[in-house]
Amino acid sequence: MKGCDDARTWMARGGDGSLDEALRLALAAHLKSCAACRDEAAGQGDVASVLHARPAAAVPPGFSARVSARLDRGASWIELAEWRTWTWRLVPVAAALFLAAVLWSGGSASRGQAAASMSVALVDTDGARAAPEAVLWDSSIDEGLALRTVLTGARQTTPGEQRHD
């Protein structure tokens, strides 16, 4: 031990009983020979005793109920303020929107492909191989024309339709 400074450090640490045996003995030896540190140690112990014996204040009645009420009351605001909460809650909505978008774009593509096929069928010079039911998908074709095509199996053309054969 170097002196009173070390002794005072160890007095504090000794408060937890965490001094090893060698230091504890060294401190004891110093306290025996140093009245100032002995007085300091006594004072430290006295203050600690008084504080430890401080009468605890009674918790105000209904304390836990008030905490609970605050948690209930604050839940909506707290959760709104917590972006992780509401972003997670939006996941199903986002998934539904994504699915709808995929279905919509897929449907559009299918319709586009059908229209393209139909267009090819209409310009096909071989009337016997034309698929009449495909004509029904073409909204630009007159209903009567479509019906005649289906019933007769012969491809009909509208007046404005260009023939490529």
Partner: peptide, 13 residues
């Protein structure tokens, strides 16, 4: 002296 034994551990030695 609740804290005294620990603080003044050296007194015991």
């Amino acid at each position: 002296a609740l804290a005294r034994p620990a603080v003044a551990a050296g007194d015991e030695g």
